[in-house]
Structure formats: structure tokens, C-alpha cells
Amino acid sequence: MSLPNRTLSYSLAINEAFHQLMERDESVMLIGQGVKSPWYVGNTAQGLLARFGERRVIDTPVSENAMTGAAVGAALAGMRPIVEHPRMDFMLYAIDPIVNEAANWFYMNGGKLPVPAVIWGVINRGGEQGAQHSQALHALFAHIPGLKVVMPATPTDAKGLMIAAVQDDNPVVFIDDRWLYGEEEVVPEEFYSIPLGKGIVRRQGSDVTIVAVSYMVREALKAAEELAQQGIQAEVVDPRTVKPLDFDLIHQSLQKTGRLVVADGGWKTCGVAAEIAALAAEKAFTCLKAPVQRVTLPDLPAPASRTLEAAYYPASADIVNAVNRLVQPCHEELALLHRVSYAAQ
């Protein structure tokens, strides 16, 4: 029996989405490396094989290119497959079926055949895993026309967005983060979806807008707590999908706060934070009282050693610092003075 306040972890919320999707729709299937093994996918796939059989839950050879292509081909033939990559790094072998084929198929064939496939990539950072087990490549996929990119930050969203992704007729890149797998909250037991392209305000505030993506939402909320103690009210906006991006929601927040910090767990250059900053400059310039700040990974590969990891991954303190740089009253004047004195030298 369902409990009114049933809590679920992020990973089990994804698992519940799969169970509910697969019991409702026989065309939904899961294929990917390690779907039989918690080593790869945690408990996101638990119980599926026993319940739905080995034709709809397929653990695969290490052949990312063909396995992703097979998912795309199955989608073209009327299935709704989810193809899973336990580390996003491995997805790079599958760029052709994702970018050349899935993303383009509908457009280049004049709208004749949709590609209802979900390409599920797990960001698996930390743990001294180094440069090839840690990458967050969402910006790369968000760059590609024809792909939608979803990045849930909470268990409730993970379930609702996975359901929406599978039900969408387009190729959707669903990206989650292993650092979120243990997060727990009350998750509705019913079958529900959260629309792709609609963000959410996670915390109200009037002094600064923090747009945070995926794992960084948690860091942004921590930062907002800390800032509140300093008397700064931060509004935290979670876009939930990186593409399509709900800039209207960000814009509304900026009209209130006039200051923007973007926190993203990807790299800085040409990243999601850069895109949001550009949109702010393009569409919300008159709202801005201060330059936009980005809190991202530095432009370098992920290191292994724990000391370097600690320096590499941005956390709530970095967001607090970024906000402080914005709200210091003399910030603009100081910057201007700095430029003037520099020019005079």
C-alpha cells in the first residue's frame, strides 16, 4: 500500500520510472552496458530484468557505437528504447548514432519519422577516477540541434523527467549524476511526468539569482542558506532541462534581482553557463546591475588525486564567493577604477 509520505532515493526514483513506463507500454525497453550490475548503474535497474525479461532489458557487449545505433534504429522501428551509458565518457564512442543519426533524422527526412529514443548518460565524478571516468558532457549535446538535454536535480524530477523523456517523440539525452543517487525526498508514487523545457524556482530571493544545473542545485541551495545568514537573499533557479532552456523563468528572476550567478558542473568555455550568460546579455541586459558570474569546472581535465579533486570541483563556497563579488556595493566602481589605472600604466 502506498504511504502518503513515501520517500525515495534519486536512483530508486529512476528505477520506479522504468517500472511504471515498462508496465504501461510494451515498446519501452532498456539497453546498455551493465544494466544487470549495480556496479554500473547502482539500483536504477533493479527488478527490471526479472519482471520484463531479457528482450526488453538487455545488458550489452562493450560496443557503445552499435548499441546506441541499435537503440536509435529500434526507435525508428517504433520502440521507445532507453540506451544507458554508465559513464558519459563512454558515450563519445556513440557520437555518430546520437549526433549524426538520431538528432538529424527527423529534420533531414522532412519530418517523416521521429526518433523516440532516450540516451541516458551518467556523470560519475569524483573518487579519484580521473579524466576519463568523470566528464560532464551535457554542453556538447546541448549544442546539437534536434537533441533535448535533461538534467534532473532531485528524486522527484528524476522520475518525472525520465517519464517525460521516454514519452517524448524526440531523441532526449537524459543526464544524471552519481553524486545525486543517494538524495532522498518524498516522491509521488503515481505515474507522472514533468514537462521538458520548464524550469523551477527552488528558493525565493530578491538580491541575486543563482541558476544552477543538476548537482549544482544542491550546492546552490547550501550557498543560499549561508548567504541568508549574511543577509543576502538568493533566488535559486533550476532549469531542469538544459535544452530546451526555460530562459523566461530566469528572466523573470533577473527582473527581480538584477544579478546573476550561473553554477554548472561542466567546463567554462562554451559551456551551459556561457550560454545562460549570453542569453542574459542578449535578452535581459537592462535588468542587470552587475556582470554575470560563472561557477564552473576550470578548463582542464579531471584530476585523480583527492587533493586536486577538491580544488577542481566547484562547491557551495565558490557560489558564495561569486555572489559576494556581485553584491559588494562598490564592485562596479572598483572594477572601473582598476581598468582605468591599468590603462594608464
Partner: peptide, 12 residues
């Protein structure tokens, strides 16, 4: 590029 797509159609 389409070899694996055909593979997927067969899988379907």
C-alpha cells in the same frame, strides 16, 4: 552509420 540502425530495427 546505418548498419546499427538496421540492427536496431531487427532488434525491435
Amino acid at each position: 552509420g546505418t548498419i546499427s540502425l538496421a540492427l536496431g530495427a531487427a532488434m525491435a
